[in-house]
Design a protein around this nucleic acid. Sequence first.
DNA 1: GAACGATTCGCAAGCGCTTGCACGAGCGAC
DNA 2: GTCGCTCGTGCAAGCGCTTGCGAATCGTTC
Lengths: 347, 347
Amino acid sequence: MKEESHVNLAQVARRAGVSIASASRALRGRPGVSHTTRARVTLAAEELSYVVSPEASRLAGGASTRVAVVVPHLSRWFFGALLEGLESVLRDAEVDVLLYHVGDAEDRRDFFGLLPARRKVDALVLLGLPVDDEERRRLELMGVQITAVGGQVASYPYVRIDDYAAGRQAVDHLLFLGHQRIAMIAGTDPDQPGWPVAVGRSEAYHEALREAGLPAHDELVVTVDWGGAMGAQAMGRLLSLREPPTAVYAHSDELAAGALRTLRRAGLDVPGDISVVGIDDHPVCELMDLTTVRQPVREQGVAAGETLLRRLRGEPSDDAVTLPTQLVVRGSTGRPRRFAASAGALT
Amino acid sequence: MKEESHVNLAQVARRAGVSIASASRALRGRPGVSHTTRARVTLAAEELSYVVSPEASRLAGGASTRVAVVVPHLSRWFFGALLEGLESVLRDAEVDVLLYHVGDAEDRRDFFGLLPARRKVDALVLLGLPVDDEERRRLELMGVQITAVGGQVASYPYVRIDDYAAGRQAVDHLLFLGHQRIAMIAGTDPDQPGWPVAVGRSEAYHEALREAGLPAHDELVVTVDWGGAMGAQAMGRLLSLREPPTAVYAHSDELAAGALRTLRRAGLDVPGDISVVGIDDHPVCELMDLTTVRQPVREQGVAAGETLLRRLRGEPSDDAVTLPTQLVVRGSTGRPRRFAASAGALT
DNA sequence: GAACGATTCGCAAGCGCTTGCACGAGCGAC
DNA sequence: GTCGCTCGTGCAAGCGCTTGCGAATCGTTC
């Protein structure tokens, strides 16, 4: 049940009364065709509702672009928003997007081992998907441009935020409020060892405390898998400490939201008893009144797309774009109880 | 700056000492090639790290499949999860996925007007994207199979949940708890007029109330755009009623979560003062302890992919798959105050 | 040992399109 | 009326691969 084979260039040419060559040139806007001919061909093509065969066109040398987008998660807001931004600029440039979801370790092995996108695309975008040396070597086999966004550092032109800076904005905010006993819920992705995002966000915590002259308490750092449920669990662990923290800095809003849930269940007041801050400005922040550090997600996707297009055209382009982040104060952070208490005592 | 042109079949054939024809047959697993030849060719291909040119292969008749997936939102959990399921089965079948994000009205016009996927794919999947008659007519021009999932009713083979049934599960739950004054926060998508999902979920509400012999109060139905912020706003409107509802049924969890936020801000107790139930079992439910009706999202994507593959192979397949939904009771629903009060009086 | 079917293999004809190149008009300048 | 141009057009050679078909090879059977 093959559909009536498509209209081809020959038919258009015949109808316009010209050679296939001229028809091709006319349609692709190539020079060397008179105005009238071009018009006739265009008309014929329209009447026949003709569309070039991308295979034939590419085979014969007529460019056409396609890029592969590799992403580790599709159902998470961050990746979706990033993809949305990226797709929009690519679509505007008439570049087709081939999607590859590389979730768990097995997907990873398959993707880098088989390189399914090989020979099918002119460029590749790593969307929040850091790769190791071995994988990088395999990618090289594809012989195409590679751009990274939201995650990978160096080794490829990239667009990202400064995770260290973002982390600092969050922790510094807590410090500024007067917190001294600050915990960190660090996130990891089981399928993405050595995730640079987590590294930067963790460093920020340690540095900030050190600069503030605060001691490092190992028990105040809990590392769990990304995701709300894990955040809730991590918070539970922190609450079981002899001396729980007065504030919690979470690597992501999902983790923070999970923490919030545990605090609520425990009947604790936020930010009265404990303050919580996350990073990303995930939509859930609005719903849970969570203070966070906003990062421009869609914009990163857009910037990555633009960088990619520029490089595809051979134009020069920044190889490293870092977008700014910004603290968004909502209701989950406040001064630590001690301050409030002493302030109350003064009254 | 073209990369060293790819290795081609001719080179593999030469290295294996056979003709191009045999090499092709060997590599594609076609009959008519001796064992030893096949082995030699395979080896040569491997050594040269050869990969067929999809353009040439397709052009010459060697199939290869590609499908276009059209989706209205990428950053929303529901669509992402659906896509994740779909992509996974398609990837396993070595089918390439071309992504098209059709967000606002303009994107829509462009997509259906230009049909950018035309001639590029062997099938199309409408992922939570209902189309009208005119658009359907345009799609026809592509001459390919079309499958719908999560949204579109009829007109194409589809996979979905029974939105009416899901709505009933939610509303019936509230009725069972003894609620009599139940409000509905209905969702609409400004870019998707006549969204069937909303229709089914609304009908469920009206029918359930009618069957329960409860009067229909227009002021108890608020229709807003999808999304948490709107849910919060809608709840505000409901709270401003002379006699607010004792329970709220929201078309989606995002709306329900927004409603919850407003209730919390108003200092009301949930479910003590007001119960809230949503639909979907969005991850936020876990975080906000929201009762909901779970729908298998990823599974719908998987089912759609399987249906698609089957039809692509010409095998028979169900043209209408409806997956079951299930009530998930969490902490946002309970008996209405009146009951609790009288029960308390008895003690 | 000859005839015959079963295998294997290579030739060549495309698939639909792009583009270098040669050819034929038109044109102004002399 | 030529010559030399420019411009428009078509021819034909691929792009890399698939596959029908006839040729070649081989093992069998009487």
